[in-house]
């Protein structure tokens, strides 16, 4: 199983992603090797601590088109992004906390470290969150983020993306990723996206879905997220996620 999981994820580092060279662990991770654990992580705190259902988002936190208005509306193309959080068995992960952050339509983050010469949008903050429902479903309304330059290499541009953080059943379900948009020509040139094994890259690209479009308001994109964890967790154990 661990081999399968590894094949979905990039390694900690990737040569073309320059800043990764000094930051990813230098050595192979160690197996926990606990007695009583059939697999490496079956019985430890990392799979026993239950995190789903612990957090609540604010009423407007899922709607980035409205949550930061200051007397006007954010500029750009409004989009709805929706999907489900599932475990490896296809079961919905209920009560998962999803947190998102992104650039505005011009490719600028509301962040002190972003010095890209593009306008800040006073009516757009670029951060949101929500909790999945009984079917593992989430939905955000936001603005199509713009591409922006970064200094990894000459003329480097990040493809348009939304950052996703998912807190699911347990620590081993933890996922931070980025959702991309179909047809973006920058995907082929982006070392962060290219660091993902080729067969798995498509899972990071949302699908346009007319059914999710909100007529006269926002285009719809579908993005499902599959996280590790529950399949390897004894559900009736002390501290399990059964609620």
């Amino acid at each position: 199983m661990s081999g399968k999981r590894l094949s979905a994820h990039p390694a900690y580092t990737y040569p073309d992603y320059k800043s990764s060279a000094l930051r990813g662990p230098g050595r192979e991770p160690v197996d926990l090797g606990e007695p009583g654990a059939k697999q490496s992580s079956g019985a430890g705190l990392e799979s026993r601590a239950s995190l789903a259902g612990r957090f609540k988002a604010g009423e407007l936190d899922h709607d980035l088109t409205r949550s930061a208005r200051r007397g006007g509306e954010p500029l750009g193309e409004r989009i709805a992004v929706s999907g489900r959080v599932l475990d490896e068995r296809g079961n919905p992960v209920r009560g998962a906390l999803i947190e998102v952050w992104q650039a505005n339509a011009a490719g600028r983050y509301r962040h002190k470290a972003d010095d890209h010469d593009a306008p800040v949008d006073p009516n757009f903050h670029g951060a949101g969150r929500c909790v999945t429902d009984g079917e593992g479903r989430y939905r955000f309304l936001t603005i199509q983020p713009g591409a922006y330059p970064w200094q990894n290499h000459h003329n480097a541009w990040r493809p348009r993306h939304i950052h996703f953080s998912v807190i699911g059943d347990s620590p081993i379900s933890r996922l931070v990723t980025q959702m991309y948009f179909p047809g973006d020509p920058l995907l082929d040139l982006d070392p962060i996206f290219q660091a993902v094994p080729a067969a798995a890259r498509g899972r990071l690209i949302a699908h346009f879905d007319l059914g999710l479009t909100q007529p006269e308001f926002a285009l719809g994109y579908h993005f499902d997220i599959v996280v590790a964890g529950s399949g390897a967790t004894p559900r009736d154990d002390h501290g399990s996620s059964a609620k």
Binding site: K4, R5, A8, H9, P10, Y17, S20, L86, D87, E88, R89, G90, W101, Y109, R110, H111, A113, D114, H125, G126, A127, H163, S165, L175, V176, T177, Q178, I192, F193, V196, P197, A200, R201, R203, L204, D224, I225, V226, V227, A228
Partner: peptide, 15 residues
């Protein structure tokens, strides 16, 4: 189901 791949948290996660 195949897992969704991880990506870096990036420089702007505090947002």
């Amino acid at each position: 189901l195949p897992l969704t791949p991880s990506q870096t948290v990036g420089p702007y996660f505090t947002l």
